[in-house]
Design a protein around this nucleic acid. Structure first.
Lengths: 355, 355
DNA sequence: GATCCCAATGTAACTAGTTTCACAACTGAT
DNA sequence: ATCAGTTGTGAAACTAGTTACATTGGGATC
């Protein structure tokens, strides 16, 4: 068990010696076996298995200048917002022989830059970034080190880096239109912190493109189930009255739904609720959440392919906008004529069914 | 923009030449600046910034034999089961200068082995594995390549690799005891696929350690919110009658809760529901989910430290069992005397309040 | 039978760092 | 003045691969 006992792993030279060939031949067996004569190849392959030889990725990387690793900077894995996309990216990347290092940033800009530095230091060949608004320092870094990067979950064809995502503004507009068509006029727009999150800002902008006769109240909260709940609790306490909650993320909608339920406010009879994202569990809530579907996995897959192609074949990807689409389920309904402006605000502490 | 135009990144030799010193000196400035005379160091540092030099991780790795990268094999990022833990690991690892590559395996054993191979091929220094039951091929691989590995979310002090987790069996027992103490006797134990998942098996075992007078029905389903919902839908269709649902994972409990609600079965008045995990959103559901808290983040942090220490200082970590603890919230209540054996099964399609 | 070509292999020089060892220059004690 | 000890630096040999170029030997062509 002592330190000298662990005979170090075999390397190319060891294999060459064992097979009685040159290192070049071993390398050929590894990389272009076809050009090596069969019996030589067999001899080398035997030596390889006998010595338990495995080529060192570091040594390969040093020659090729290729680490075959990408990095992803994401705010968090906590809520499902990025989980599906990251998993899709990871899976697709695997098929291209790339690995993914995920760094979480808690949406703190300085931390983002810091983590980006670390990723570049370990030699990632490219980066996935959420959205396009990041510290100038981050972009400086990318430019100086000439690192390809793709902004995901966002679309802006004019941006200096390719964006592969969806039209967040439109997603919110779809949700708003839906509520509008159902006759809702006093709408609470529930969103996470605007600062450092351009997806949120775009969605708010989309929700703001309202027609007359629609009164919007913007409520900022933490981007979590708890955050959504908080908003409703506050609305209840303040006796605010809304026809509908437009939650800029399904995660928030869950919290809104739970808390409305806690106050006994019937959804969609008394208030409608709509989210944006269409997470897997969104169709399982009771009532099933109406939302705007974002093709998060498709986007992840495509972004993975695009970045892989970029570094492999030097083709800078085009910006891609995936369509998002309204999924009207059970949490949105036509505004009932009988519902007056107080029905949503004067709910007792326990369930009622007065619609 | 042509290929020859991209003057390649500066290396140690370039810096040495620019600063008029030897490569050894540059290396010293990088790694032990204290032993280099101030003016020499300044000269080198100037050259470094002027040339925009950044040491190559690959070249470092080749010398040190250290990649500073760990790998984690996890079934999925989809449901929150691993997300928090992975994030905790990643965060803690960062403080030790390690990065984490996550590989998802969809709980398919062959894929697990395959992904493990890939991780080892990129040179990870250690691995985090969920639980201890894995293909023999995986353990062969780890043994042959002498890769440290820690099994997480599981505890078995006698296992050949360190386990850092919690007592899944006890977690389930805590849940069962709680239900028992509340007078529930006909209990549905809802769980994900047993195959390839020892956490699930342990929890089932824990839930099976029942006293007389308790009738347990084990229901296997997909490990997801939808899976939990399916179970309830089936129970309703078959007119099965339960006092309580013991969900071996909060994710399942969410689905159970949603679906019971859809059928108008009052929780906890008619049936109690309890989960295991205590995800952040568990305390936000309505009613708030009773569950057994698993210290997933703490565990992740500790596992990260342990693996880092293992490869740094060659200290094989001890197995650690974190305490799990019952969190009785609102989905569990004493069985009401009036509830007869049909109350849960003959529920109409829409809400009733007959408790 | 000499020339030519080509496939198969070897030699050695790369990739970009770290590290050992040698050596010069200076300090301080004898 | 001499010797020992420290300090700072450089030359070169490592780490483990890839690859450009050279070499060898056999078969086909002239």
């Amino acid at each position: 068990m002592n330190s000298r006992r662990d005979k170090k792993r075999a390397n190319l030279r060891d294999v060459a010696r064992a097979a009685n060939v040159s290192v070049a031949t071993v390398s050929r067996v590894l990389n272009s076996p076809a050009i090596v004569q069969q019996d030589t190849r067999l001899r080398v392959e035997t030596a390889i298995t006998e010595l338990g030889f495995h080529p060192s990725a570091a040594a390969r990387a040093i020659n090729s200048g290729r680490s075959k690793i990408f990095g992803a900077l994401i705010p968090s894995l906590d809520n499902d917002t990025f989980a599906l996309t990251i998993e899709a990216i990871e899976r697709r990347l695997g098929q291209f022989g790339f690995s993914l290092v995920v760094a979480t940033t808690a949406e703190v800009p300085e931390q983002e830059v810091q983590r980006a530095k670390e990723l570049l230091d370990i030699g990632v060949e490219g980066l996935f970034l959420p959205g396009i608004s990041h510290e100038a320092a981050l972009y400086d870094l990318l430019a100086r080190r000439r690192v390809p990067a793709i902004a995901i979950s966002y679309f802006d064809p004019g941006f200096s880096y390719p964006t592969i995502g969806y039209d967040n503004r439109k997603a919110a507009r779809l949700a708003l239109d839906h509520l509008f068509e159902l006759g809702h006029q006093r709408i609470a727009v529930v969103h996470g912190p605007k600062i450092h999150n351009d997806r949120t800002r775009e969605r708010i902008a989309g929700a703001s493109e309202h027609r007359k006769d629609v009164a919007l109240t913007f409520l900022e909260t933490e981007l979590s189930v708890a955050g959504g709940a908080t908003v409703v609790a506050q609305a209840m306490a303040e006796k605010w009255s809304f026809d509908a909650y437009l939650c800029v993320s399904d995660v928030l909608a869950f919290g809104v739904l739970f808390e409305l339920q806690r106050y006994g406010v019937a959804v969609p009879d008394v208030v409608s609720v709509i989210g944006i994202h269409d997470l897997p569990s969104s169709q399982m809530t009771t009532p099933r959440l109406s939302t705007v579907h974002l093709p998060a996995e498709e986007m992840g897959q495509h972004a993975a392919e695009a970045l892989a192609q970029w570094v492999e074949d030097d083709v800078v990807p085009d910006a891609v906008c995936f369509e998002c689409k309204l999924v009207a389920r059970e949490t949105t309904a036509r505004k009932t004529a009988v519902t007056n402006s107080k029905s949503a605000s004067t709910a007792p502490k326990h369930p009622t069914k007065d619609a």
